[in-house]
């Protein structure tokens, strides 16, 4: 086998370095261009759309929950007055959770809610209060009591966690039901986002996990709490 001349060796080595350079550069670009690159959710993003009353379905759910809170309060005060499916267990969870540290409260409530029956919403025709035309709605938001009675789908899991943490005294400003587009399952998904004292966000997922910090694979669409609606998709600012 003939030996390579110095020029040929140097040429080969030079080419390899260029190839390695291309590869490294392309990898970095791919990482940043990739749609699954984790986008950090922040509560201070300027995406405020308006008050909660702007979304009639959500506002009605809040209103129903307010009227149903009498049942929850009565049950919390006296176990014998817990009427309805799920109320006794809810009472037990809330009373035992109240003395736990926040992280353990999240774990307990996340698991309690996730263990409940998954039930997909039926689509229904309804007059939209926004467009004032009859539209096909596919998502129906449930109150905590409605969810305990019948189960629900992902937005109901997130909403139930929201109402339970509110019962435990978490401030409204630290909680949001966050709707995202999940690129992995190719569908819209809701999670409860909780702001921590260090401003990081924890996501209480319906699959049993609690994601602390960045959430991979989500494109944030909108968020709601008792007071406000935030638009993360159309109103970038």
């Amino acid at each position: 086998m003939p030996e390579l001349s110095d020029d040929k060796t140097m040429g080969r080595s030079y080419r390899w370095r260029w190839h390695a350079g291309y590869l490294a550069w392309a990898s970095v670009m791919l990482l940043f261009a990739s749609p699954v690159f984790a986008e950090q959710y922040r509560f201070d993003r300027p995406a405020y759309l308006g008050g909660a009353e702007l979304l009639p379905n959500w506002a009605e759910t809040l209103s129903r929950h307010r009227s149903q809170r009498v049942q929850i309060d009565t049950c919390l005060a006296d176990e014998n007055l817990c009427e309805g499916r799920g109320l006794k267990s809810l009472r037990h969870i809330l009373l035992r959770a109240v003395d736990l540290e926040p992280e353990r409260q999240f774990s307990l409530i996340n698991r309690y809610v996730n263990n409940r029956h998954y039930r997909r919403d039926r689509s229904h025709r309804q007059l939209s209060a926004i467009s004032e035309e009859e539209e096909v709605f596919r998502s129906k938001w449930s109150t905590l009591l409605e969810f305990l009675r019948r189960g629900g789908d992902c937005e109901d899991y997130a909403t139930a966690k929201y109402f339970m943490l509110r019962e435990l005294g978490f401030p409204v400003d630290d909680l949001r039901v966050l709707v995202s587009y999940d690129r992995k399952v190719r569908g819209y998904h809701a999670v409860l986002a909780v702001k921590q004292p260090d401003d990081s966000i924890w996501f209480l997922e319906s699959n049993g996990s609690i994601i602390k910090g960045r959430h991979r694979g989500y494109r944030y669409i909108f968020a709601v709490n008792e007071q406000s609606v935030w638009d993360h998709d159309g109103a970038k600012g």
């Binding site: 759309l49 702007l54 979304l55 009639p56 379905n57 998954y118 997909r120 919403d121 939209s128 926004i130 467009s131 539209e135 096909v136 709605f137 596919r138 998502s139 789908d153 992902c154 937005e155 709707v179 999940d182 399952v185 569908g187 819209y188 998904h189 809701a190 997922e205 319906s206 699959n207 669409i221 909108f222 609606v229 638009d231 159309g234 109103a235």
Partner: peptide, 15 residues
């Protein structure tokens, strides 16, 4: 935007 938001079908089921 509200019209778009209110018609979103939030139904992803996760194992």
């Amino acid at each position: 935007r509200l019209q778009v938001i209110e018609l979103i079908n939030i139904a992803a089921e996760k194992d």
